[in-house]
């Protein structure tokens, strides 16, 4: 099926993109990797008047060190993120979650910024971004601003990116030496996460000294399992201790119900998978 008609612009700078967005108004749509947008257009579930393709802006692509942060351009494809040495070394959890996104072809085109800005609650990159306290750099006509992950995810498919703004970069603190794991549960390899858990741990001498846990698809946004984090700190990385802490995984969640999983089952999965994710991370 073919999308409805639209105009197309391919700006070569962030400033031009912001200007194009201003001119395009409400019906303008940003095209990043297009791996969610193109299917939506083909099904004619959306019919924007103009598509602004960020693919021509070199600045938005790549992973770099920026002081104590690892900065990833919003247009960096998943394939590049998961293979990047800086990511592997300092933000391994993000790389692990990225490996589970869709399939190789989609990972070649799909981008970190596109996925995060799309903010599908079943998407796999929100939970690690939230758990790892990522910062989101957003450009608009009045310059750039930075919002925390906690502020970024607002609702289903809704983020802190305002009208006329573009996500340009995602910045992560360094988690060098941390252990991490992304535990994904889906019905088939192609299916989206029913529930998934992102876990990163700092383990000192067998004791968990810091913990970050994020949940995928347990609410309208990615959710930080702070109760689990608190319960883990100071505990030995043993099965019993971890499972006990994982019982708190559903605190603050609002699990959706659908044909694949009603809320009670999702809550159960969140507890089981949290235990598994933390144990695998501690592995």
């Amino acid at each position: 099926m073919i999308p409805a008609k639209f105009d197309y612009v391919r700006p070569s700078s962030v400033e031009d993109a912001v200007e194009a967005l201003r001119q395009g108004g409400e019906d303008a749509k940003i095209l990043a990797g297009g791996q969610s947008l193109l299917p939506v257009l083909r099904l004619r579930l959306a019919a924007p008047s103009v598509i602004i393709d960020l693919g021509g802006i070199p600045e938005l692509r790549g992973v770099r060190e920026d002081g104590d942060r690892i900065a990833i351009g919003a247009m960096t494809p998943h394939h590049d993120v998961m293979r990047d040495d800086l990511v592997k070394q300092h933000v391994a959890l993000l790389g692990q979650a990225t490996e589970t996104v869709a399939d190789p072809q989609v990972r070649h085109r799909g981008t970190l910024g596109g996925a995060l800005a799309h903010a599908d609650p079943a998407g796999d990159l929100g939970a690690p971004a939230l758990a790892l306290d990522a910062e989101f750099v957003i450009a608009g006509s009045s310059g750039r601003r930075t919002v925390s992950a906690a502020e970024f995810f607002v609702d289903y498919f809704t983020t802190a990116i305002g009208e006329g703004e573009i996500l340009t970069e995602i910045r992560f603190p360094r988690y060098t030496g941390w252990k991490s794991h992304y535990e994904k549960f889906n019905r088939t390899a192609q299916a989206w996460s029913m529930v998934a858990v992102a876990a990163a741990l700092k383990v000192d001498g067998g004791t968990i000294s810091e913990a970050r846990v994020g949940l995928t698809n347990m609410g309208t946004t990615p959710i930080r399992a702070t109760g689990v984090e608190q319960a883990l700190v100071g505990q030995p990385a043993t099965a019993d201790a971890v499972r006990a802490a994982a019982e708190r995984a559903t605190e603050g969640t609002a699990a959706p119900s659908d044909a694949d999983a009603a809320a009670d089952y999702r809550e159960h999965l969140a507890r089981v998978l949290t235990g598994r994710a933390v144990l695998a991370a501690a592995g």
């Binding site: 095209l31 791996q35 193109l38 083909r42 393709d53 394939h79 085109r109």
Partner: peptide, 12 residues
């Protein structure tokens, strides 16, 4: 790189 050509615009 492998891509799904149904999810790429010709202009891209």
């Amino acid at each position: 790189q492998s891509v799904k050509s149904c999810s790429v615009l010709a202009v891209q």
